[in-house]
């Protein structure tokens, strides 16, 4: 899926942050965040709400300026290679009255940024056929064949999320940037979407930067985590960062990290993992 760059010898870093600080309205959102993401790595950005997780993603996409530090995305300044990044912003859901099909939404990821209109059907020629084939391919990849031609507003949250992931994947990105893709999904769909992202990451070599406020659904898949909390950030492999001491320090309240029978880590008492803390 992700072809290596023609000139690339050993795969370079997809993403590199060094000492990044972001300010907004005179307030420091977060400071001194450093991170290196290699191809095919699954990295989670975690932390309570309001600490700037989405802000970090926007800085990576070049949508927000940084006050200090350095960001390199695919070897260039942020925003330079956004066509090689699949982005899924934080959102609730499409309005039920949105009368546009899922497959049209997926297609927008292919050439929605190009001026003019695409010729319909056979008039589109080889480029049109190529686009349609690719649309079907990613829809099959996310398992959305059953409902892709229905109006997207009428689909469930999990179905919408799969189609949006298909949209993000359609141009064979090197990096997937997902902002709370598990939010507003039920437990079954959280597990299914997490597994889908893991599959894309492992079998297609796409690096993933995923924001979540609850780590448990994705914990088994993570290569690195970065925890943002008021005033600080902790980065590293999950087994080093996700400990009772570190998390309790970050959240300023008792957080337990347990191991279940299969040896999987489970975080308990994390303040923002429950619905009532967000509105």
């Amino acid at each position: 899926m992700s072809e290596q760059l023609p000139d690339a010898g050993p795969p370079a870093e997809v993403l590199e942050l060094a000492g990044v600080t972001v300010r907004a309205g005179g307030r420091v959102i977060f400071s001194d965040v450093s991170l290196r993401v290699r191809p095919g790595e699954f990295v989670a950005v975690l932390g309570p709400n309001g600490v700037g997780k989405s802000t970090l993603l926007k800085a990576v996409l070049g949508l927000l300026p940084i006050a200090d530090g350095r960001i390199r995305v695919l070897g260039a300044e942020p925003g330079r290679h956004n066509s090689r990044i699949g982005y899924l912003p934080q959102r609730r859901a499409f309005d039920p009255a949105t009368r546009i099909r899922g497959v049209d939404v997926v297609r927008m990821g292919w050439d929605g940024d190009r001026w003019g209109v695409a010729l319909p059907g056979r008039l589109g020629g080889r480029a049109g056929r190529q686009a349609r084939d690719r649309v079907h391919e990613v829809i099959a990849l996310v398992g959305a064949e059953g409902y892709a031609t229905r109006p997207i507003g009428q689909l469930s949250g999990g179905e919408q999320q799969r189609l949006l992931i298909a949209q993000a994947l359609i141009r064979r990105p090197d990096l997937l940037v997902l902002d709370e893709p598990l939010d507003s999904l039920d437990v079954t769909n959280q597990a299914a979407v997490s597994a889908l992202v893991q599959t894309v990451c492992r079998s297609h070599g796409v690096a993933v930067l995923l924001v979540a406020h609850d780590v448990n659904p994705i914990l088994p898949y993570l290569d690195q985590v970065i925890y943002l909390a008021h005033g600080g950030a902790v980065m590293g492999p999950p087994e080093q960062v996700i400990t009772s001491d570190t998390l309790s320090m970050l959240y300023g309240t008792a957080v337990d990290v347990l191991r279940d029978r299969t040896g999987r880590l489970v975080v308990v008492g994390q303040p923002d993992s429950h619905a009532e803390h967000r509105s």
Partner: peptide, 23 residues
Amino acid sequence: LLALGRPLLFSSIDSDVARARGV
């Protein structure tokens, strides 16, 4: 309208992603 075409549709449906993609 013809010239605006796809970017208009994209930003009407999904302005955040359209903006990130350079629309």
